[in-house]
Write a protein that binds this DNA or RNA. Structure first.
Length: 256
DNA sequence: ATGTCAGGCGTAGCCTGA
């Protein structure tokens, strides 16, 4: 089973890229983030023509997440199932062939110490709590996929000195990521690239892609039962090199 | 810090967010 995650930075701007990529890459499941549009604007018919169905949690202007699958999606859930409201559409989950797939768009966090940064850390705490409530880390097959907006280590950054203190890489956000993973999730990508230096996002500003100034902030974290089935993991850099790309490239993981 | 995008508003060009 091939599972991919891709922050498309507007589904309207990237609709044809997504359709082309489905045909070319043939994933079984594609998690999307940053749709920047309500569900009504999602290209359900075009995706269906490729042989996929979609569960979409959209939002006007900002955020918005989806799961696209050629296998039936069941038990679709949007947002957190806790008492606190989240005005931002950043999380959707569904079950596919006994695997629970979550498409998550972690908050960026603005600047360290800002209200947006507090929201990011709180959001991650709520995600950790949701995992603990809904799943058994030992027996369930769970894949947390998405734009985590966190580079786990300095090896995941082209120019660490430029990013080390940022909301994407500072100590406190990495600790928050460890807390989420402490539920019982492993980064299934990194073992296939032990030397690091593989990125999934490059800032449009400053020609980040051309200059190798990238970060690995898009991830697939899995429970052990699923993680041990991983047979490959890669970033599709070609998609980032296309004309009018998203600032993120698709991350693809294959399970036996 | 910012050399770029995208959407909203509203129909030019500025604002926000990333």
């Amino acid at each position: 089973m091939k599972v991919a995650t891709w922050n498309v930075n507007s589904i309207r701007a990237r609709q044809q890229h997504v359709i082309d990529w489905l045909y070319a890459a043939q994933p079984d499941v594609l998690c999307l983030q940053e749709l920047k549009a309500p569900a009504a604007d999602f290209p359900f018919a075009e995706v269906r023509e490729c042989g996929y169905e979609a569960a979409v949690f959209g939002q006007k202007t900002y955020n918005g997440v989806a799961i696209v699958s050629r296998l039936p999606l069941t038990k679709v859930q949007e947002g957190f199932d806790d008492d606190e409201d989240d005005p931002q559409a950043r999380l959707i989950s569904a079950e596919v062939e006994g695997v629970t797939v979550l498409s998550a768009y972690f908050p960026n966090g603005g600047e360290v110490g800002s209200d947006k940064y507090d929201y990011k850390l709180r959001w991650m705490e709520r995600l950790r709590a949701l995992l603990g409530r809904r799943f058994d880390a030992k027996t369930d097959q769970v894949a947390l996929c998405g734009d985590f907006n966190v580079a786990p280590s300095d090896d995941d950054i082209g120019r660490p000195a430029e990013w080390r203190d940022s909301v994407l890489a500072c100590d406190s956000v990495r600790e928050a990521l460890h807390a989420v993973a402490s539920f019982g999730l492993d980064d299934v990508f990194r073992p296939f690239h032990p030397q690091g230096g593989v990125f999934s996002w490059w800032d449009y500003r400053g020609r980040g892609f051309e200059r190798g100034n990238g970060l690995r902030i898009d991830h697939v974290f899995c429970t052990a039962k699923l993680a041990r089935r991983t047979v490959g993991a890669a970033v599709d850099r070609q998609e980032r090199a296309r004309k009018s790309p998203s600032d993120h490239a698709p991350v693809v993981v294959e399970f036996a």
